[in-house]
Simulated scan of single mutants.
Amino acid sequence: MIESVPDKRLIADSFSRAASTYDQAAAFQRTVGSNLLARLPAGFAPSGIVDLGCGTGHFTRALSTLYRQPVLGLDLAEGMLRHARRHSPGQGGWVVADAELLPLRSESRDLIFSSLALQWCPQLPLALKEAFRVLRPSGLLAFNTLLEGSLHELRDAWRAVDDHVHVNRFTPAAELESMLAGTGFGHWRCEPETHVLHYPQLGELTRELRALGATNHNPGRPAGLGGAARLRRLTAGYEQFRTAQGLPATWQVAQVVMVKTAAGERS
């Protein structure tokens, strides 16, 4: 069976609605993005930097401070960009953009940074192809993305309730590495990370996901959690995972750094 892919408009609307609450709930996102920043090579001096899927602009500002220059923020969600613009005076501009069709000239940038955004691309190979086009020779794409296994506890708990898709699907690690190998980038590395967060109650996890805009974006998705009986079954299903630290929520993350080698350079 061919699975439907998430609708970009639904994704953009969801994150736009979450713009005012995102930063208060984004501790995990900050950690993962900071880990990506730490993987940028020492001595790298890019000219022309893009924060792709910039959200509220946290890492746009961090990149600007690190490299002492304005950074262009791109995002599919207009609400996120409005929030970022208000909180980021002096930045290099904010543009509504689709990662699969970037509004940028070919070979015009040295660095494209993207933290926890590309998992929302229905066709990730297109986004990688666009990044390759926009980067200059020796330019760098640094991104992270969620992998299969993320929120597996929530997915398993929902199976005790019904057969609908309630949790976003993410790319298996082997499939991602196959995609990376098929790009034109001469050098790349992909490093996995596992993060386990804990919550006292299931409601705190679901409220945080809503605050982040990271709700179910699959077509035909059920609305909300349903009635009281369904919620009780979901809660009971999740309770089986409880540890002394609370209810776990696992996130599997791939940290990827790719270099567009100069023409004629051997990979």
Rank of each mutant, 00 (worst) to 15 (best):
L146W: 06
F113P: 00
L146S: 02
M258A: 07
L154T: 01
Q24N: 08
L63H: 01
G57A: 09
F185Y: 14
S267W: 09
H217K: 14
C121Q: 05
L231A: 06
Q252L: 04
R159M: 13
P103H: 12
F241Y: 11
A229S: 07
R155Y: 13
Y67H: 07
R159Q: 13
S20I: 03
G139E: 00
A223R: 06
G55S: 05
Q24T: 15
L104V: 03
H87F: 06
V161I: 11
T194W: 05
R39L: 05
L101F: 12
E100K: 06
S108I: 09
A42Y: 04
A18K: 00
E265G: 12
S267P: 04
Q24M: 14
K260Y: 14
N144R: 13
E175H: 12
E208D: 11
V95G: 11
P103T: 12
Q240K: 14
Q91C: 11
G90H: 07
E153A: 03
A127P: 00
K260P: 00
R30Q: 12
A173T: 11
S138Y: 07
R136C: 13
K8Y: 10
H152E: 11
L76M: 06
L205Q: 03
L154H: 02
H164F: 10
L118V: 08
R9F: 08
R266L: 06
Y22Q: 07
T183K: 13
G182T: 14
Y22S: 05
H87Q: 11
C121T: 10
A229H: 11
A229L: 11
Q255P: 00
R68Q: 08
R17W: 05
V71M: 11
P89R: 04
L74M: 05
V134C: 08
A263T: 06
G57K: 01
T215L: 11
A173I: 04
E153G: 04
A263H: 15
S114L: 07
W251P: 01
H87Y: 15
H195A: 14
L176P: 03
P125S: 15
Q255V: 02
C190A: 06
S178T: 12
P6D: 01
Y199Q: 02
S115L: 06
E208I: 12
L74H: 00
E3A: 12
Y238N: 06
A62H: 02
I49M: 15
Q201S: 14
R210A: 08
P137Y: 02
S34C: 05
S115A: 07
L146H: 04
F241R: 04
G184L: 10
E153W: 07
L72D: 03
L212P: 00
Q123I: 05
G227K: 15
S88T: 06
M80K: 08
F44K: 14
K129D: 15
L116G: 01
G79V: 01
V5I: 10
G48Q: 02
V134A: 06
G149F: 02
Q29C: 10
P70Q: 05
A214D: 00
F15N: 02
F170R: 01
A223N: 10
R221A: 05
T65D: 12
R221G: 03
L36H: 03
R86S: 14
T145M: 04
M258G: 00
T243L: 04
S115Y: 13
G33M: 04
